[in-house]
Amino acid sequence: MKTALKLLLFTLLVTGFYTYIGQMVPQTEVHPPKTRELRADMTQDELIEAGQEIVGGKGTCLGCHTIGADKPGRFPDLGGVGARAGSRKPGLTDVEYLAESLYDPNAFIVEGYSPGMPQISKSPIGLTDPEILAVIAYLQSLGGEPSVTLQTHLKQARAPK
C-alpha cells in the first residue's frame, strides 16, 4: 500500500511536471477561418468585401472571368463592369442587369462571347440570395457606385424558406 502511494505521488509529480512544461510554451488557439456571415447591419464596405471573397472563392467566378486583365479570358472581363452595367440592356438598371446576369446568365450575352455560364444560384455553386447581393455590390464597386444593400429586393430572389 505504501509503495502504491509512493508511486501515485511519483506519477502525479511527473505528469504535473509535463503539464507545467505544456504551460510554458507560447499558447495560441487557432480558430478556423471565419466564414463571413452576412449580417443585416453590415456596412457597404463590408458587403463589398464579402462579395469580393465570394467572387474569388465560393462563387468560382474567377475560373472563367478576369478582373482588369489585358487579354480577356473566355468570358467577359469584369473590370469596370459597374460603370457599364446600367447601359448594357435597355430598360434595366445596373442592379437589375447584374441580377439577371447572375440568376439567368444566358438572358443576355455580351457580343463576341458564347453562352455557357451556369446559374450560380443553383447547385453546385448554389449562392444564396444575400450572397448574390454581396456579389452585385462588389461588381458595382468595380467602376461604379455601389447602391445595393442586403435589404435590396431582387425580383429573382427566392422566397425565404
Binding site: V25, P26, T28, G56, L62, T66, I67, G68, A69
Partner: peptide
C-alpha cells in the same frame, strides 16, 4: 515575452490582384 511562429503555414492559395 512573446513567442512567435516564424514560418506559419501558408494558405493553399491567395488572390493576388484578383488573380488566384
Amino acid at each position: 515575452a512573446t513567442g512567435r511562429t516564424i514560418h506559419p503555414a501558408p494558405p493553399s492559395e491567395i488572390t493576388f490582384r484578383g488573380k488566384k
